[in-house]
Every structure is written in C-alpha cells, then in structure tokens.
Amino acid sequence: MVGLAVVSHSERAAEGIVEVAAEMAGDTRIEPVGGDGRGGIGTVPDAIGDAIDAADDGDGVVVLVDLGSAVMNADVAVEMSDAEAVIADAPVLEGAVNAAVAATDPSATLDSVREQAEAARGMEKL
C-alpha cells in the first residue's frame, strides 16, 4: 500500500493535517513530520527521511509539503531514502486528503496517488 508523509514547518500543523486526512485513509500509513527538532518552526531532512521510512511498506511514499524549505528538505530526504518516494506538487492539506483517499484504492500506485494529490491544485471552494 502506498504510504504518505506530511511535511510542515510546524510539527503541530503536520499532525493536524494527518488527523484530518486519516479520517479518509483507511489502513494507509500517514506520517506527520515537522519542526526544527528543537520545538521551533522549520524542517530537517533526517526527520523527513525517518517519516518516509515509517510510511513505506514497500509500495512507495507520496510526500506532501508546505513551504520553501520543506520542499527542499523533503527533496534531500527523498534523494537519501532507500524507499521509493515522490513529492506531490500540491497544497499540503487538500493534497493529503486526496492522496489518502487515492491510496485506499486497491489498484493504487505511487503515480496514481501522487496524481490525485496534485489534482487538489485545481480545487475550487466557492
């Protein structure tokens, strides 16, 4: 099953987003990760790598990210990880919900889950 990692500058934001997405996620593994490792705002590649590993059961991991350094540090983590991981170019919360739903599809692949996450870019609210 494709897993998810949710990366935010705020650890609490990551956890909150996972809380929302998990409602739709069935048995999908979704790992939150965020913060600078000292209780502050930021992102750290090693921690993101650990989250990717925890979310991976062999079928790969789609990584959702918030701003700037989250993207870069996730990029580093993906490069260093042994797991097959891809970053979705998507809004972090909406993308996580979409990806969570997509991952429960029995025929889901890493690409299909990422595509569904990225479909959230065009989501209209009003």
């Binding site: 600078d36 590649p45 350094s69």
Partner: peptide, 15 residues
C-alpha cells in the same frame, strides 16, 4: 549543516 540548520539554508548551503 543539513542536520542542524532546520531551514532552507540546510539543503542550500549544506546539501
């Protein structure tokens, strides 16, 4: 730097 910086400077300077 990548492990300690906790921001964009980690991957940019360190990576």
């Amino acid at each position: 730097l990548m492990a300690e910086v906790g921001g964009a400077s980690g991957p940019l300077f360190g990576g």
